[in-house]
């Protein structure tokens, strides 16, 4: 109780003294900025977002605080951002699942026209993940097994229509494989089942390999190898033309005043390109990636179209 109050007071006092209360008063932001996050605390995206908060707070001159609003595969968080007042005091950290995957697998109560894009914050490759004691030494081993035992090739995901499900199905499709999808209840359940040998493989952000003790990566889905998994071959070097990064960025409800938008954009740019943020991301095995609002918006559209093609082919698009 005291701890929480003290911390808030401390943040307020620190930011006030560091930047001088008087001259920031007149312009945005005059009070803390809320960041709606469609995941539970402790999730990887949550950690990444918290990693940028410090820098962002400094750039804004006001504390930025995370509000966790999970639910309905991140849809509820996006709706909360859409319905917020477009004054810049409520923005959202929305991710690939929210903006590109789920809109293609079911009908959602928002479109890209409901948001003002501020900037992209991170982009990290995903990886093909198997149990640490799995007999597969390489992606080719796994493909060979899947080709011989199509019925036994179970791949997991934290739920139907999730990023992990769609991306892995697409990767298998490229190899003319099908496999059987086993949707479990959340990521911990997936890695537990993998540890028991019930699931053969799954696809998840490469950072997972660092978070869970009992798994290893067979292939990183990127052009080149990544720094924190130097021994794992990339899909680029195996001539597999498939990348399925996890990414996320800041969005605001449509209709931000120009000055407010400019302030948020410049603060975001400074924060994402800062050294402090880069160091924080190294701990979570995630890679900072800056795109301006309009570039980010175009990127999101491209990704959404890419997933649309996949879900159409898999027959997962809503009727």
């Amino acid at each position: 109780m005291l701890g929480s109050v003290f911390a808030r007071l401390a943040v307020l006092v620190l930011s006030a003294t560091a930047f001088g209360i008087s001259d920031v008063r007149a312009e945005f932001p005059e009070r803390p900025v809320q960041i709606i996050l469609p995941y539970d605390a402790g999730a990887n995206v949550d950690l990444v977002t918290r990693g940028i908060l410090n820098v962002l707070s400094k750039e804004l001159g006001q504390p930025a605080v995370v509000v966790n609003q999970p639910g309905a595969s991140t849809v509820l968080g996006a709706v909360a951002v859409k319905n917020a007042r477009p004054d810049g005091y409520t923005i959202g950290m929305l991710v690939v699942t929210t903006l590109a995957v789920v809109p293609n697998t079911r009908s959602v109560p928002f479109t890209s026209a409901d948001f003002d894009y501020i900037c992209q914050v991170y982009e990290a490759p995903s990886a093909v993940i198997v149990a640490k004691d799995s007999p597969f030494k390489s992606f080719a081993d796994m493909v060979a097994f899947a080709r011989e035992n199509p019925a036994k090739f179970l791949y997991g995901s934290p739920g139907p229509g999730s990023f992990n499900h769609i991306s892995f199905a697409a990767l298998l499709g490229m190899q003319n494989l099908k496999g059987t999808h086993a949707p479990l209840s959340g990521n911990p359940a997936v890695y537990q089942a993998m540890g028991r040998g019930e699931l053969v493989a799954n696809l998840d952000s490469a950072a997972t390999v660092r978070n869970y003790d009992n798994v290893k990566a067979l292939m990183v889905l990127s052009k080149e190898r990544i720094k924190f998994l130097p021994d794992v071959p990339s899909s680029g070097e195996l001539n597999i033309n498939f990348e399925s990064p996890v990414w996320g960025g800041f969005l605001a409800p449509k209709g931000l005043p120009t000055a407010v938008k400019a302030k948020l954009e410049s603060a975001c740019k400074a924060a994402v390109t800062s050294d402090e943020y880069a160091r924080a991301m190294e701990r979570f095995s995630t890679i900072p990636k800056y795109r301006t609002g309009s570039d980010f918006s175009a990127y999101v559209e491209a990704e959404r179209a890419r997933y649309r093609k996949i879900t159409d082919e898999l027959g997962l698009s809503p009727k």
Binding site: M1, Q34, R85
Partner: peptide, 15 residues
Amino acid sequence: EILLGVHFPAPAIAQ
């Protein structure tokens, strides 16, 4: 609101 950080939504009428 103060102690536990539950944010009440702004009333729709306020806008």
